[in-house]
Simulated assay, not measured.
Amino acid sequence: MAPPRLVPLLKQFDFARERLVRRLSGPDVDSGDGVRVPVTAMTDEEYLWEPVPGCWSVRPRARAHGPGPGPGPGASLLVGAGEWGRDGGRPHPYPPPITTIAWRLHHLGEMLALRADHVIGSHALTENEYAFPGDAAGGVAAFDSAAEAWRRALLAADNTALDRVGHSTYPDGSDPDVPFVEVVWWINQELLHHGAEIALLRDLYRARRG
């Protein structure tokens, strides 16, 4: 059984995860007042849609013939493993680029998968070893799989773990320096705010032809 103070954070995570998946895949989603609103599953075109010039996205590393099209404008590399990579590199440009649904979903999946590994896994997984698909259905499935891995990490935490500084050994954040419960809170706000951004991009894509 989850510690009492973890229960509301776990419920919030479950709500945000389910709401995002249903917003992307359908067949419907709660409008917020109990009414089920129909949702059309996201297409590959929408997944990779760049609403403005200079977007960061998820891109193939190679074409069938010749070099690949990535990284995108302002990016110095394609992050990740496999045939597709996420525009990235440090230092990040300022102001930050607008990012596609694919980029944001990759970011969320990577964040969840890596932190799950650094809590209950090998404690060694890096962003350059994380593979993410270039198609919409695959991207949603990869995100949901990473979310499930993170949920297992949460369920493995007791009160002692919640208070332990460095319980998550993920090195590219504040994880090694703060109690685990603060990492749990941070992950929830990342999922909530990126999920809202993705929902807005879906609205803009639907309305783009006026």
Rank of each mutant, 00 (worst) to 15 (best):
A2Y: 07
R5Q: 14
L6Q: 07
L6P: 01
K11L: 14
D14E: 15
D14T: 12
D14C: 10
A16Q: 13
R19M: 09
D30Q: 11
S31Q: 09
S31R: 11
G34W: 07
R36P: 02
R36L: 14
V37P: 03
P38D: 13
T40L: 11
A41V: 04
D44H: 11
L48W: 02
W49V: 06
P53C: 08
P53D: 13
S57L: 01
R59V: 06
R61S: 13
A62Y: 03
A62T: 12
A64Q: 12
G66D: 13
P67D: 15
P67A: 15
P69G: 12
G70H: 03
G70I: 11
G70W: 09
G72W: 00
G74Q: 11
S76L: 13
V79E: 06
G80E: 03
G88M: 08
G89M: 10
P91F: 06
H92E: 14
Y94W: 13
Y94Q: 14
P95A: 08
T99F: 01
T100F: 06
T100Y: 07
I101V: 15
W103N: 01
H106Q: 14
M111D: 09
I120D: 05
E127T: 07
N128Q: 15
E129K: 08
A131C: 10
F132G: 00
F132Y: 14
F132A: 03
P133D: 07
P133E: 09
G134Q: 03
D135M: 04
A136E: 00
G138D: 10
G138H: 04
G139M: 09
A141Q: 04
A142T: 08
F143S: 02
S145P: 00
A146L: 04
A146F: 02
W150V: 01
W150T: 09
L155W: 04
N159E: 15
G166N: 08
S168Q: 10
Y170T: 09
V181E: 09
W185F: 08
N188C: 12
A196I: 09
L201C: 03
L204W: 14
R209T: 07
